[in-house]
Design a binder for these strands. Structure first.
Length: 335
DNA sequence: ACCTGTCAAGTCTGG
DNA sequence: CCAGACTTGACAGGT
């Protein structure tokens, strides 16, 4: 089994390279000239895309093929007071440049719209802004010219005191989404509400691929071990919605999220680095039936944590014939 | 240069 | 019914 590692949003190694610079609504409102303010927002977005490209080049230099882009590329993009503003035209070239770099290198990128995107909500205004946020993310992926294998990963959302009803509402709301949004979505188990088994059930019902977060599964489960759910999770990546459009017969490589608990007293928070042992235990369990998996490192130290993990794996590989280091950011488990 | 309160957004808990 | 927690990088305004 080939395992490729990636990281999220920003680098702690490359300095002055934030892809999520922003402007608050408070300071935007203070500007006399609204049009000049909008041009300023577009300039910030251009800088964010430029820094995203710098990060991708840094990734290429370290053979990192998997990366999650920040949702904050365009500041205030979906703010209710700026709905008449269309930032995409001014950013066409910047998005195209980032997208062509990704395509040329065959990188796998994604977005993770944050927890304000809640399709399980009973409130119409929250649903409307969630759909608007998803449309914004899809529009960015399309502006980059990325195939539908570039996904938006979200959680199911709140339970509102009745989890089955909330799951039902999620499914109803999902069914009403435009096709372009449906085929760009993955669902991830969360650490408090919808656990891995419950998320899997919704994924199977809707034909959506499931991203398993093994840290969330550890702190929110029904007594199952993570690899016990894996055969069914793996199958969700065969669904028609998950297929690669370049090669419709080829299933998309499944993705997992990896992080370690900050401390025994604070088990839900993410630690700076990743403990290799629990990760390896999981990977060895799934390796016999899984040709490849992409593992997104969600540690506070970001890419630094990825580099440290590779260092630890390199040492372990010397004594463990089941581990082979393939390059700067990928390994093979088993044969 | 460094520190602290705040930020557009949702949900849950406790009072 | 409402305030605060949750969580996070970065702004904004202060020292």
């Amino acid at each position: 089994m080939i395992v490729r590692f990636g990281y999220v949003a920003m680098s702690t190694v490359i300095k002055d390279c934030s892809p999520s610079k922003t402007m608050t609504m408070a300071s935007f409102s203070k500007l006399e000239d609204r049009e000049a303010g909008l041009r300023k927002l577009e300039a910030i977005a251009k800088m964010n895309l430029h820094n995203t490209l710098r990060l991708l080049k840094h990734n290429a230099g370290s053979e990192i093929q998997v990366y999650r882009m920040t949702s904050k590329l365009i500041p205030l993009a979906t703010h209710p007071e700026l709905q008449d503003w269309n930032p995409y035209a001014a950013l066409e070239d910047s998005f195209a440049e980032v997208g062509s770099y990704i395509r040329k290198r065959g990188m796998r990128v994604s977005f993770h719209p944050d927890h304000f995107t809640v399709l399980s909500t009973p409130r119409p205004e929250v649903l409307a802004s969630s759909v608007r946020d998803l449309e914004h993310h899809v529009r960015m992926l399309e502006a980059m010219g990325l195939p539908r294998t570039a996904k938006n990963n979200i959680h199911i959302g709140g339970a509102y005191g009745d989890k089955p009803a909330a799951a039902e509402r999620f499914c109803t709301h999902f069914a009403a989404l435009p096709e372009a949004l449906k085929m760009r979505m993955t669902l991830e188990n969360d650490d408090k509400t919808f656990n891995a088994a419950e998320t899997l059930e919704v994924c199977r019902r809707l034909g959506l691929p499931m991203v398993l977060d093994i840290h969330h599964q550890w702190v929110n489960n029904e007594g199952e071990l993570p690899w016990e759910l894996w055969p069914d999770i793996l199958r969700t990546w065969d669904s028609p919605l998950a297929q690669a459009d370049a090669d419709p017969g080829a299933p998309l490589v499944p993705k997992i999220h990896v992080s370690s608990p900050r401390s025994p007293s604070d088990p839900r928070s993410h630690a700076d680095l990743v403990e290799p042992a629990p990760l390896l235990a999981f990977l060895k369990r799934i390796a016999p039936d899984t040709p490849a998996v992409d593992a997104m490192i969600e540690a506070k130290a970001k890419d630094q944590a990825l580099f440290e993990l590779m260092g630890m794996l390199r040492e372990l590989a010397e004594k463990d014939p089941e581990i082979t280091i393939l390059d700067g950011a990928s390994i093979r488990i088993g044969t």
